[in-house]
Design a protein around this nucleic acid. Structure first.
Lengths: 212, 212, 212, 212
DNA sequence: TATGAATGAGCATTCATTCAT
DNA sequence: CATGAATGAATGCTCATTCAT
């Protein structure tokens, strides 16, 4: 292992250390009332050091979201690739994966919501923004794939895999989608109905589930 | 109508005016980056005036949540009381009600999430906190009633009405519940599993919905 | 006098109050070591109040330069307009004017130099930058006019009025010129020789002055 | 050459390398906005290394001034010692020398001005302070000598050699003198009129220069 | 010697809140 | 009631300087 490599790894460790501390402090005090000094104390580092690893407070927060997305993505990819599982088993595995994610970071929803503000996005590096968007899309697609598989094998009903993926997604990070609708609105090609449609799809699924 | 009454009504109008402005600003900048001055400008009032109608910024935010809860509650009560509707029609009406709520204030989710922070709760008057809790409970109960009705009439399967109510609730304001779990955790009588259970219930319902 | 007018005047007074305090503190500690809190204390105001009247520290400093330029400009305009003065008397008046300016604010040179940094210019409102440039140019032109007048009346030698104006100027605010050369360099139309030329002109004048 | 000597020379080289980098960075960003890290990057060294060669940032800056003063001093001494030159040729040579200095480091004026702050002087080693003062005085004296020479030979008018030296000096480093007046003011033995006198002298010379 | 990660004091700036008018 | 100028505590962030390697 070269020196460069070791340093890179060391740097990664520090970032983790800070993010874990941040997670603890955010969950205790909320994003706003948590100060960088709080986080530094929790990480047993000095305030200045935080800025060696994160450009600013918003970027630290967004990195927490990126981290959970990466974790989710790995889990989903793994479930999707398990060839020998039956569709229903895959759904079961998916369910477990989602639980895992929640266990890993119960704050996921709040973190994702915090990204919603365009004022926050201004403070993020474009790299980070595009990473988050890419992982979000990947996750939705992988979830959809899992359902597609069930449909192909005639175990699931048709038409709703994406809706299902989305309602799951909405539960965890609804706002990322919301953010995309904003862009659609901006570009004058769409309207505010995205979340409404998601809810509508969810209702249809619910409706089937509760009927005898 | 006495003078006192008229003044009371006038005061209510001003509060509405401010809340509408706050909603617009929050949706644009997010709760944290929105300043009281922004809101005052949007409301065409001076910053000082805001404090004649709301104790502080957190209470203004919480009042937005209370407002949407009141709106939701009226809608739900109305659906529940429609004796002549069949259970499936009631679900359909419920669905429309939820859409209405979303149309009325798409920010509901974020507002509710913001209440989660115990640091925020400290700043609220106990009156406001209890109002919100009461309306939250009423809404869940009314939703549950609607499903109960269907179960009694043998249109819906048994056991899941509350689960259904909760998943809906989770979609809109899950975090208020989450906040309660926090209190449970604090009092050392419970654990973090509330949202997990909600998700679990949701999965079961989903699972039925997608099976042939 | 309308209310608006009175407020405008009041605002101007506050700006003066702050600038006078800033001048005192800057002269005592230098621009960098002077803190906004120092200035606030000196002005018997709170730090926040400073930002109601000046966008940031750099803009407060630049405003000091603008202020002295305005003072200089008035003095010069007055000297230039005195029809009944002989050229030599005008030069004498100009000399007194320059002394006055120096008495008014001995820090002028340092303030002007501080503007030199492009990093500082970034922090200034474009309005302020253009005001400063305009007044600088006006001052040079008015000085040149005074010498022109002497030349026309065959009291002064030809060709050097602008050079003379510039050498005076260089003594007081050389860097503003320097800054303009920077722009010339940027636009690839010029080179770094502006100050050199100024010196060269000065030398020619000096040379004449010291010869028998 | 001994090892000690070679090391000393090596050390001098490093100091030069750093000062050259500092000069570049200062000219780009100004003294205040330039960071030690900027300078280290420009010098392709690490920040820590800078402190092996300079006690602190202020001392690095002052060393730049010292360097230019040394350069100037050598040039002046050489001009002064050229016995075979006529006074007017010496002035011409002096002029060239000043141009050279300006070419060598156009930032000289700003560097000198920065030394003005008594807060800066506190951070300098007394050795460095006395070196700068000595070289400053030497330079003025050498310039004065050059003019004296012309006066003795009846080529220049009497009385103004020091004034001329000072006006030149004021153009380049006026503030070092200014700084001395400050000390005089501090010790309650003098007043603020030094620069005023300098200007007055300059005016007299100018006045002669522009008359027919 | 050289490094560069870590430091932490210091500071500019913000903004919820107040209060004299 | 309404104002909005003033407040000043709070905090994000910087950067000269240090020190273990």
């Amino acid at each position: 292992m070269g020196i460069r490599e070791r340093k890179e790894r060391e740097k990664g460790r520090r970032r983790q250390q800070i993010m874990i501390a941040a997670k603890r402090v955010f969950s205790l005090k909320g994003f706003n009332k948590a100060t960088m000094e709080d986080i530094a104390n929790e990480a047993e580092l000095s305030p200045g050091t935080l800025y060696l690893y994160f450009k600013n407070k918003d970027e630290l927060c967004a990195s927490l979201s990126l981290r959970i997305l990466q974790y989710l993505n790995i889990k989903l990819k793994y479930v999707s690739s398990e060839k020998e599982l039956e569709p229903e088993q895959k759904i079961e595995a998916l369910k477990e994966a989602m639980y895992d994610v929640y266990e890993f970071d119960p704050l996921i929803l709040i973190n994702m919501l915090h990204l919603q503000s365009s004022e926050v996005l201004k403070n993020l590096s474009s790299q980070l923004v595009s990473d988050i968007k890419e992982l979000s899309n990947n996750s939705i697609e992988t979830m959809a794939d899992i359902f597609e598989d069930g449909i192909k094998k005639n175990v699931f009903i048709d038409k709703k895999p994406v809706a299902f993926a989305e309602i799951l997604w909405a539960l965890f990070s609804g706002v990322v989608l919301c953010d995309e609708s904003k862009e659609i609105i901006k570009s004058n090609k769409g309207n505010k109905n995205y979340l409404k449609l998601t809810l509508e799809n969810a209702f249809e699924i619910f409706a089937r589930g509760i009927k005898k």
